[in-house]
Design a protein around this nucleic acid. Sequence first.
DNA 1: TTCTTTATTGCTAATGCTTCTCACTACCGA
DNA 2: TCGGTAGTGAGAAGCATTAGCAATAAAGAA
Lengths: 147, 147
Amino acid sequence: MSTNSKSLKSTRQEPGVSGLRMTNQRALILEIIRQRRGHLDADEVYRQARQKQPRLSLSTVYRNLQTLKKLGFIEELHFNEEHHHYEIRLATEHHHLACLGCGRIIEFQYPLARLIKRNVAEAKDFEVIDTELRMTGYCTECHQEGK
Amino acid sequence: MSTNSKSLKSTRQEPGVSGLRMTNQRALILEIIRQRRGHLDADEVYRQARQKQPRLSLSTVYRNLQTLKKLGFIEELHFNEEHHHYEIRLATEHHHLACLGCGRIIEFQYPLARLIKRNVAEAKDFEVIDTELRMTGYCTECHQEGK
DNA sequence: TTCTTTATTGCTAATGCTTCTCACTACCGA
DNA sequence: TCGGTAGTGAGAAGCATTAGCAATAAAGAA
Ligand SMILES: [Mn+2]
Ligand SMILES: [Mn+2]
Ligand SMILES: [Zn+2]
Ligand SMILES: [Zn+2]
């Protein structure tokens, strides 16, 4: 039993309650998203994962991204593209600034969820599970050359 | 010249500066998004539009959605689906609560952009063009039956 | 350990949404 | 009225994601 899968297994919630199993593929995918600090898309996860498990299939990546998302381990990000990105879900809430010029993603922390929950969700009796804020525009290096 | 296309033309910014033309198709698509208060996707716009212009093609819808977005007339929304929705861009900023149960989209107003610009974007020297906030969860009628 | 059950995988094909290509139109300024 | 060119329609192509299914392999029971 490798150190990796061990640490992953111990992280898992509800070991067998929901009938889920911790496969090597699932552990690897989660580990990759946990270690890389970027915002990976399915294909990037796939390519990384195949370096360790060459027989892994892309379907398995997609399936596990869905599963890990539902379990709350990872978050799915919707930038201005037609495919999605994924990142590990951490304790501290953060959001994104997406540059239209260079494509860079800048992160920032702001306790938005709490704020909106108090001011809006509560009034509308809406139970918030997830929050996503993204601002699009131009970063320092890109807003010289205008729009 | 119909009343519709007239009002659209007068709304248009920079009449011919950028080389853009106001075609019937473009006017119709914008008009549909302007009138419906929902969050239409490309196919819904297409179906609506074909009632008035049966020969309109889906390509034209997609092309014009992109154009109208770039011109700032409409906004592209990214819910938790893999296709996009569009709505007219109004003066007052608003955001969305998306229910995982019934799919309903609840709108609310909150001066987020101003807030974040002052507190974050300014510090990071990021020029904000667009803001999108979406919270996912369960609406009143759906959070009875738990998750 | 061995056995059983069934969640999960790897392939492949299929789907869904969006973009591209290209010949043909039609808008608009001169 | 004319010419240059943005825009259109139709279909094909491109990607991202999902579905179907026989074969594996977790995880709990014995
Ligand atoms: Mn992030
Ligand atoms: Mn809206
Ligand atoms: Zn940039
Ligand atoms: Zn609901």
